[in-house]
Amino acid sequence: MDAFHRGCTEKSLHRRWGHTRVRQRDWERLLTLSHCWAATEAGAVVGLASIGPVRNEPGTVDLGIQVADSRHRRGIGTRLIHTAAGRARTAGAHTLHAYIERSNRPMLALLRRLGPTVEQPDGTHLEVRLPLALLVLPTTHQPVRQDLHAHPQGPDRNR
């Protein structure tokens, strides 16, 4: 994962993490509170997705996604979101949530292509919601490999 992040631009890191350096506590929090998946090509990580519960909103999961800058516009992000949304739906979630910078037009366009979104401005960011019932998932798609560091049984909700 370190090699993956070293290959990302500062702009890309900031869009995903809110800062330009991924810290140990970022990983710990992500792995404690979320389910994570990594997309790989030839053994190298080229994308990362996570979903985790939104506090005080049962049935709503927060989506985090990052794709290597050199791999944008190749369907990796779409496959990651499909995998995450399918898992969320199976677990009983009804809404996918993403908090993104308004300037992150590629991510916003991707979310809008997946289905009807509800968008709430929040300063320089947008809170985007996508009802999972309206999300069109492919009947067959190439799944992404689950990150071996993720918690397969789910996050520890008692932390």
Rank of each mutant, 00 (worst) to 15 (best):
3 A>M: 12
5 H>R: 07
7 G>Y: 09
8 C>S: 11
9 T>N: 01
9 T>F: 05
16 R>E: 06
18 G>H: 06
23 R>P: 00
24 Q>P: 11
24 Q>T: 14
26 D>W: 08
27 W>Y: 15
28 E>S: 14
30 L>E: 01
34 S>I: 01
36 C>I: 14
39 A>V: 04
40 T>D: 12
40 T>Y: 04
42 A>C: 08
43 G>N: 04
44 A>T: 13
47 G>K: 01
48 L>A: 01
49 A>V: 06
49 A>D: 02
50 S>F: 00
56 N>S: 13
60 T>W: 06
60 T>M: 10
63 L>A: 05
70 S>C: 10
78 T>I: 00
78 T>K: 13
78 T>V: 08
78 T>F: 00
79 R>K: 05
82 H>E: 12
86 G>M: 02
87 R>E: 11
89 R>C: 06
92 G>P: 13
98 A>W: 07
99 Y>W: 05
99 Y>S: 02
100 I>K: 03
101 E>V: 05
104 N>T: 04
105 R>T: 15
106 P>I: 05
107 M>W: 03
109 A>C: 04
110 L>M: 11
112 R>E: 15
114 L>K: 05
115 G>F: 11
116 P>Y: 01
119 E>M: 09
121 P>S: 02
123 G>P: 09
128 V>K: 00
130 L>D: 07
131 P>K: 07
132 L>H: 06
134 L>M: 08
136 V>W: 06
136 V>E: 14
138 P>W: 01
138 P>S: 01
140 T>D: 12
142 Q>E: 14
142 Q>T: 15
145 R>E: 15
151 H>N: 14
153 Q>L: 15
154 G>I: 08
156 D>V: 10
156 D>I: 09
157 R>K: 09
